[in-house]
Amino acid sequence: MPKDPVCGKDIDESGARASTGQTAHGAAEVDPNMGTRSFHNGQWYYFCSMDCRTKFLASPNTYTG
């Protein structure tokens, strides 16, 4: 299972991407409780929380090694 690159928690990537419904005009909605993500250098990174993502974005090289 992939891990949050900041805190190391297990990430349910498919859960974070799973559609829980649609917006009024047909975009997929996801469960906000399943964490968030970020597109960095051509790759998606998944995080348990916005707090971890903020730390990642402040210093991505620290976490992508």
Binding site: S19, T23, G26, A27, E29, V30, T36
Partner: peptide, 11 residues
């Protein structure tokens, strides 16, 4: 258009 495949919305 928001219905374009690949767009995801997180509340």
């Amino acid at each position: 258009p928001m219905e374009t495949p690949g767009i995801t919305v997180r509340p």
